[in-house]
């Protein structure tokens, strides 16, 4: 999940999830970066509305946490 964490880090910092930015973050975490994978993740994330997905995920979480098990 490193590539996803790195992407969301950039997203929450309001930085572009570009290949270069992903590589910089992953490198800083000491991760050996796989070029193709970075490309694939950056491309895939361009096609979705991250804000929307996060909103849904968070709606889900609140409910789940509120659920009396």
């Amino acid at each position: 999940m490193e590539y996803i964490y790195a992407s969301l880090l950039l997203h929450s910092a309001k930085k572009e999830i570009s290949e270069d930015n992903l590589k910089a973050v992953l490198n800083a975490a000491g991760i050996q970066v796989d070029d193709v994978r970075v490309k694939a993740v950056a491309a895939a994330l361009k096609e979705i509305n991250i804000e929307e997905v996060l909103k849904n995920a968070s709606a889900m979480q609140v409910a789940a946490v509120a659920a009396p098990a």
Partner: peptide, 13 residues
């Protein structure tokens, strides 16, 4: 983590 999973699911990571 859950947000990351949601995003990952959406792009079929």
């Amino acid at each position: 983590y859950q947000e990351s999973m949601a995003v990952a699911v959406e792009i079929a990571y």
